[in-house]
Design a protein around this nucleic acid. Structure first.
Lengths: 244, 244
DNA sequence: CGCAAATTTGAACGTAGTCAACAAGTGTGG
DNA sequence: CCACACTTGTTGACTACGTTCAAATTTGCG
């Protein structure tokens, strides 16, 4: 039973045995969710956070015109409900996109963690920055790129984040696991237009499709079309305090 | 010489004298910028962060199609260049929108701060969450709201964040300090369309305009039009470790 | 097999972009 | 003090990207 969150942090910095042990305590409990099952609803009272252990989830906002905006996709190792560190009530809804397993843990565990392991607290600050930058990438995409680019970047994001875990190097083919409506809610488009863009990407030879599987037939061109930047590169955590 | 960042944190949690003193060390130096002066350019080597002490700035991304997306506006008390906590090179450009004063400080000061003041490190995690939620609000706005709503929300954001500092309660009139082009780059619109939306807001009696001044003649309606949510409310920092 | 969800396609529409011209500041140097 | 250049704001005509609505088709699944 490894700790998914320790794996995530471990991909960025060296962890000591005690640090790993402390992080493992965040994932002692476990809860399974079926596709479309909500984990948090906007305005729910908060108190716990979660580590996503397996599956794919999303966080989204429902606007009062009834439309939905997917704010981010969540993958194993991601922290869910971090808003609980600042707010009493959930600012966003979190739903499972596939069968998923989460580990709930109390906010108070972080009280302890930050005092006993300042290095981990600092690493979490750094992790927040990585996620903030990925969020601003999506913001720039929504504001200033074409429909085609936005759809392409969703494909790349899901591929990169699911394959990074299992096989390395990356298979060109993968299961998307999203409906076109969900892609639309992530990109600010309608499902109908997503369909047209997918078709266009296919006709241009950038991707192939069959059933739920997508194949990146011309990955380089797809990355160019999407304005894709890899935010896991170029890291520099040199400022972190030493362990303990 | 008060510390602007201490004021910001102090608005959220109680600070001890030692904590305030530690935070003050982040603002010992000072640097002035004229309007349009860049503080950081995308891909600059990082190493320092900054506290914005006065003025208004923005961070933005330049896409390779040449267009610009303003990612956020910065106000006194905001930390600039926090990406330095994770990256070697700046992922975004930061520019002064008005005459501004910043205090540069080295990353290593945070190494010290996080180990000696775990409570402050935890508070910074919470602050990140607030900013992350404000960012997702803008993301949802770009993806799923009308041009009019997006322009309206920029007006409200600038008003709230500039007036919060000086007078309380809030004057209905204020100086925007942004060109229509800049509003466009923040909302994902063209300057021309921003102009039409401003005019429309004026014709509908929601705002008044004269010179650089904007008057909120019907603030309630404007907030409704903008889908505006106040993210400084509903805070709960109860999990923070005790001081020292 | 039969039903519901998801995808696909076409046609008409509308919001926002593009291009262009002009007006109204703003600052500079002669 | 004015002439000039430059930036910003304003308006109109035309275009286009993406939406809306509707219907048909395919897929997944109990």
């Amino acid at each position: 039973m490894p700790s998914c969150f320790a794996d995530r942090l471990g991909g960025i910095i060296e962890l000591t045995a005690t640090e790993i042990e402390a992080l493992t305590r965040l994932e002692e409990r476990e809860r399974t969710l079926r596709r479309n099952a909500p984990l948090l609803r906007e305005n729910d009272r908060l108190g716990e956070l979660f580590v996503l252990r397996s599956g794919m989830m999303m966080s989204c906002a429902i606007l009062d015109n009834g439309s939905r905006q997917i704010l981010r996709f969540l993958f194993p190792g991601d922290i869910i409900g971090a808003a609980a560190l600042a707010y009493r009530h959930a600012p966003e809804t979190v739903v499972a996109l596939s069968e998923s397993v989460v580990s709930p843990f109390d906010r108070s565990l972080l009280t302890q963690l930050t005092t006993e392991h300042p290095r981990l607290a600092a690493a979490m600050l750094a992790l927040d920055q990585i996620e903030r930058v990925m969020l601003t990438d999506r913001l720039a995409g929504l504001g200033r790129t074409s429909a085609k680019a936005r759809v392409a970047s969703i494909l790349l994001e899901v591929r990169d984040r699911t394959q990074h875990l299992s096989a390395r190097g990356g298979d060109a083919a993968f299961v998307l696991g999203l409906t076109q409506e969900e892609i639309g809610d992530a990109t600010g488009l309608t499902a109908v237009h997503v369909n047209r863009m997918m078709r266009q990407l296919e006709e241009e030879g950038l991707i192939g499709r069959e059933g739920g599987r997508v194949t990146l037939t011309n990955e380089a061109a797809l990355r160019r079309a999407a304005n894709y930047v890899d935010r896991t590169a170029g890291l520099d955590l040199g400022w972190l305090p030493p362990s303990r």
